[in-house]
Amino acid sequence: MTTQEQLPRFRAAVRELVSYRPEKPALSPEGRSYALAANETPFGPLPEVARAIQEQIGGINRYPDNGGQALTAEISERFGLAPDGIALGCGSVGVTQQLITAVAGPGDEVLYAWPSFEAYPLLTKLAGAVPVAVPLREDVHDLAAMAAHLTDRTRLVFVCNPNNPTGTAVGRAELEEFLGRVPPGCLVVLDEAYHEYVRDKEVPDGLSLLPGRPHLVVLRTFSKAYGLAGLRIGYAAGHPDVIGTLRKAYLPYSAGSLAQAAAIAALRSGEEVARRTDLITAERARLTAALEGRGWRLPASEANFLWLPLGERATAFGAHCAAAGVSVRAVAGAGVRVTLGLPADNDAFLAAAASFPPA
């Protein structure tokens, strides 16, 4: 038997971490399963994406373009960004790790709202930095409270907009005021993983906030609306000097050739992506109305999921849904996040929720 003394010595920050654990697939007594836990799109590959992947298969014995020049050029042209202000990564979570690695070291603080994207504290601790979580106010970022938590040790601030897991979003005026309060030496990261699902005109496109703000970086991903969760590709946009430094923390070749080609094809499939996101936002409105009509209280979502702030009843509701074959994401002591799927999936969730008292 291997003893503790025989094992290599790992850093304390790593030993104390709890690994990310996705929800286990649920199965109903009839053998049915409804995957509403991971914020994926329920739609299959875009036709152009499937063709692009097929065309790339013959070259997978070769390393991908480490600089991602073709994809960078496509993003640059589509969104009016300078190519040297774009950095690719292994999903936006990969870029998140690059940012923390590049900016925050031992003793430095990384500030974020809570609950929010669960990778923020994990990756911060992995870097040896200090996570600082500021509670949401009524399920929304409390930017005033976050500004009050800024110190001379704060190196990085994450604002997830719309926020995961609550789906809430903050508007342009609030964001601009907050950005004005953050000192220039502190980097603000606007995480827009769910930007394509936003329909509230008060919520800005983060890319429009970049000019004149070198301390701002915007994150985007192809995992959600574009349907490339299995390929892991995302990017950051910001000031060229900041992005140039960020690229130094890039794990070589981590944006694979299939992912890069698929992302280009996805960007060129804008009309179909818009049609699909419109279908999801229509389901968002339908489920919100149905739940509110049954007495549920939930915040307005601008993402492809809903948030039920159930507090201590969250785990029980998650188990209740799982018994009906519906996988949802329960955050113990806080609430339950429900990804919006196809109408039949969503109806299965509503049927499960109907037999659980809202309060």
Rank of each mutant, 00 (worst) to 15 (best):
G311S: 11
R15V: 04
G227W: 00
Y197I: 03
A50D: 12
Y253V: 13
R199C: 03
E271N: 09
A249I: 12
L111F: 11
T168N: 08
T151V: 12
V242D: 00
E16V: 04
R247S: 04
V217T: 09
A73V: 04
V338G: 00
S327P: 01
A316T: 07
F356Y: 06
R337K: 08
D345E: 14
P204L: 13
R284H: 05
P204M: 12
L81W: 06
A38R: 15
A73H: 06
K24P: 06
G244R: 13
R32I: 02
A263L: 12
A145L: 09
P106H: 12
G335P: 05
A73I: 05
D200S: 11
P106S: 14
R181C: 05
N304G: 15
T315C: 04
F356L: 05
G238M: 04
V331N: 12
A354T: 10
T41C: 09
G318F: 00
M146G: 05
H239C: 06
H149F: 05
C90K: 09
D241E: 12
G80Q: 06
T101I: 06
G89I: 13
P184A: 15
R286C: 14
R199F: 01
L219N: 06
A262H: 02
Q56N: 05
R275P: 07
P252K: 09
V217N: 05
V242Q: 03
Q6C: 07
S254D: 10
